[in-house]
Simulated assay, not measured.
Amino acid sequence: QAGERGTIKPKENFDAKEDAVALRKAIEGLGTKEKTVIDILTHRSSAQRQLICGAYQEATGRTLLDDVKGDTHGKFEDFLVALITPPAAYDCHEVMRAMKGAGTKDSVLVEIFASRSNDQIAALNDVYLQETQKKLVFDLSKEVSGDFAKALLLLAEAKRDQSSAVDGEKAKEDAKALYNAGEKKWGTDESKFIDILCLRSVAQLRQTLVEYKNISGKTLPSIHDMHALKAVQLGN
C-alpha cells in the first residue's frame, strides 16, 4: 500500500480519538510530556498516525503538526514532524530541500528514488505537483546532469518493474550484458548499466547480482562507482 512503509505494525484496538485526546493533554499541559507523545506516535503505523492527525484537528480545530512545531524544538521537533507528516509529503519535502540552494544533495535523491516503490514515487510526484504546480522530473532535470541524471530521472518516473517473479535466464542475460558493458570493455557503457539497474525489479536484480558473480568472480558493486549502482545498493 502506498504510504504504508516501515517496520511499525498497526496497533490493535486502535482508537484515533483516544490517542488524539492523550496527545492534546500532553501538549497543552505545563510543558510537553514527551514520553506520552513518543509512546503514542512511535507505536502506531503511518496510516494510524494520519487518522490521529484527523481526530486531533476535529477535536481542537488545530493541526497536530502546528501544535508540535509550536511546543517542541530542535531534533525532537524534527523527529515528531517526520512521524506526523504523510510519507509522500515527507519524501517530497526532503527532495525539495535536497534540490534547494547551492549544490544538490545527490545522496538524498538517490536514497529516496532508489528505495521507494512505483506507487510511493508517484505519490511523491503528486504532492510536488500540488505544492509547486510544476512537474518534479522537469525541476530535477535542471539540477542534475550526465549519467546520474539519466539514472535518477528514470527512477523518478517510477518505471521500475514491481514484479516479485524472477526470470533466471533473463538474469543471466543481464549479468552478461553488464559484464560486457563494464569489466570486459575498455571504459564502461553506462547506458546499459542504467537501463538494467533502474528498470528491473529488486527481486530480479538480486538474481542478476548472483549471476554476475558467477560470470566475473566479483560482486557488481566493486566494479564501478557510479550513482546508478549506488541506487541499486540502496534499493536492495
Rank of each mutant, 00 (worst) to 15 (best):
A114W: 06
A165V: 09
V144H: 09
V108F: 10
S222K: 14
A55L: 10
K185G: 11
K135F: 15
K213R: 14
Q120V: 01
A98W: 02
G6C: 07
G6V: 09
E4K: 10
H224I: 15
A55N: 12
G187P: 13
G146N: 09
L140A: 09
I196Y: 08
L65P: 00
A98C: 05
V108R: 02
S115Y: 02
V202W: 09
G103F: 02
V127N: 03
A89I: 13
D139G: 12
Y56M: 11
T36G: 00
D91L: 11
A177M: 08
L199W: 02
R44S: 01
A59P: 10
G3T: 05
V144T: 14
A203N: 10
R200P: 05
F76W: 07
L41N: 00
K172F: 09
G101P: 14
Y179R: 00
K25W: 02
A123I: 02
L136S: 06
H224F: 15
T72C: 04
L80K: 00
F148Q: 10
K159G: 15
Y212Q: 05
I27S: 02
P86D: 05
E77N: 08
M226C: 14
L109Q: 09
L178P: 04
W186S: 15
A22Y: 00
A55W: 08
E58W: 05
L83V: 01
S115I: 04
A175V: 00
G101H: 06
S145C: 08
P87N: 06
I84G: 04
A89K: 14
A47H: 13
V210R: 01
D71W: 04
H227F: 15
L136P: 09
V202E: 06
Q233A: 14
D91Q: 13
E111K: 07
T104H: 10
L152H: 12
N13M: 10
K159D: 13
V166K: 02
V202M: 13
K105W: 08
S46H: 07
K134F: 07
K135T: 06
S141H: 11
K11Y: 04
K33Q: 10
D106V: 09
F193Y: 08
A122V: 12
E173M: 12
L153F: 07
I215P: 00
Q50S: 12
K35Y: 00
K192L: 08
E111R: 12
E111W: 06
D78F: 08
Q130L: 13
S145T: 13
F193T: 01
L124D: 05
L140W: 12
T32D: 01
A203Q: 12
E4C: 13
V95P: 03
R97T: 10
T36E: 02
